[in-house]
Nucleic acid binder design. Structure first.
Lengths: 252, 252
DNA sequence: ACCATTGACTGGTCAGACCACAGAGCATAA
DNA sequence: TTATGCTCTGTGGTCTGACCAGTCAATGGT
């Protein structure tokens, strides 16, 4: 197998296994080349492969970074054959939440058991960011917090599946967090749930963590059900590709 | 935007829009470089990006070819970007089983609650087929039985995710069923587990069904662990590198 | 007819150079 | 002091031309 591929696999494993966190900066091409005793061209080819796979992002003049959304960017993503299930059927959303309830619980359970010091540090950071953010627009910190926990489970499959589901949700649901949080009593409950989850995970109480996670997802699910009763429209289908640069249609 | 990316997009458009059929050979790197008036390095980077995205395959000494599987078709499927995680790392297999344990349990639970008469009929059919088949080659009936249960959960998301995971397993594991069943005592246990699961589901005992399903998956997982201890090689890559090159575990 | 050799492809790697962008730090001008 | 602008350094992006390593078919001798 080509050296560039060996290197790309090696890097991806490091990233997915949790060795490198999202937004983490990858050493420069020149450093990697020197460190691995290969030419810079090989490194660049490996990085391009990871780029194509959505594992890293590269910015001119700055460096390469672990992509926030980990593997297989478009597995279950925007153009998934599953998306059509949502067409006007909010029921599918609850099916999705049903699955998430289970998996988030498992992730929390495993995270409580397996989290390293570094994991706990990341989770704490994410949690603090969550608490410090304006509750009306904390969709991202919210996601970051849950993601940190999932990653601490050290189960790449779990990370992958949950990531796909979450992405699918965000694409589908009209700002779930923004919808739920404005209601004071809900917001308070959610904050409390997050805190319970956080404390259970970092203190290694696996069963409690699982319970907290499932309860949280279930609460969100039921809250959405209620909102729907009240007439809100939850489902929003993503639109096609935006304007995007045009690539001249031509033969090779 | 970088030239290499423009080129990769352009090529991808050509391929996806049907300009180039699967197995079609792409011009050589040197030809592309000359045709587009860029250096060969740029072409190679663009091709690596497409490679990472699963759009093309490159073979040393022969050329680059449009991949048979179009993107989007491979959610978690055969050529998933996740597949390579298995290379020589049976640990990922257990990660997968860990997730399945949870989801199969949930599916059984829901199926017990929600199965219609028709569902129960199908499950019964599948179960009978399973019992009547030669235990040494019943991978398909086995799969059919589990699938029938999952479908009875009436949760399309669950069906989809479990299907992907199962597919991934079958592609990865050297005939798990064929491996486990030959051992008489294991075979008997598995048959008993299937029967328990079956009866719990059709009689609507949700908790029992869940328990039976998770126990079953866990049993399979542990059985595999034992086999591995005894020196069996579980992981088999569908197409990948035969020799099983080792990627030294190291920091970047 | 057979088989080994050779040569002309293909992709894979290397070396070193230069350009373009981002950011930190410093120096100058207001 | 503050603000503007420059330079210096490190980053990715591209180019060149060379060589290595598989693949395959035409060639040539047996």
């Amino acid at each position: 197998m080509a050296i560039s591929q060996e290197i790309s696999y090696r890097l991806e494993r490091l990233i997915l296994d949790g060795g490198l966190a999202p937004e983490h900066k990858i050493p420069s091409e020149r450093q990697l080349a020197a460190r691995l005793s290969v030419s810079r061209a090989v490194i660049r080819e490996a990085l391009h492969e990871l780029q194509g796979r959505g594992v890293i992002e590269t910015r001119h003049g700055k460096g390469s970074f672990v992509a926030s959304m980990v593997p297989g960017a478009n597995d279950l993503g925007e153009q998934s054959p599953l998306m059509h299930l949502f067409e006007g059927h909010p029921r599918t959303l609850y099916d999705l939440l049903e699955v998430r309830e289970q998996l988030e619980g498992q992730a929390a359970y495993l995270a409580a058991q397996r989290a390293t010091r570094l994991d706990r540090h990341r989770i704490t950071k994410a949690f603090q960011a969550l608490e410090e953010t304006d509750p009306l627009s904390n969709a991202r910190p919210d996601h970051g917090f849950h993601l940190a926990i999932v990653e601490a489970s050290h189960n790449p499959i779990l990370v992958h599946v949950l990531n796909s589901l979450k992405k699918m949700m965000l694409l589908t649901v009209q700002a779930s967090v923004a919808n739920l949080n404005p209601r004071e009593e809900m917001r308070k409950k959610i904050v409390r749930q997050h805190r319970q989850l956080y404390e259970a995970v970092v203190s290694g109480k696996a069963a409690a963590a699982q319970k907290a996670a499932t309860a949280h997802v279930r609460f969100v699910s039921e809250a959405m059900r209620e909102m729907e009763k009240e007439g809100s429209t939850l489902i929003r289908l993503p639109v096609g590709p935006e304007t995007g640069a045009q690539y001249p249609q031509a033969t090779i």
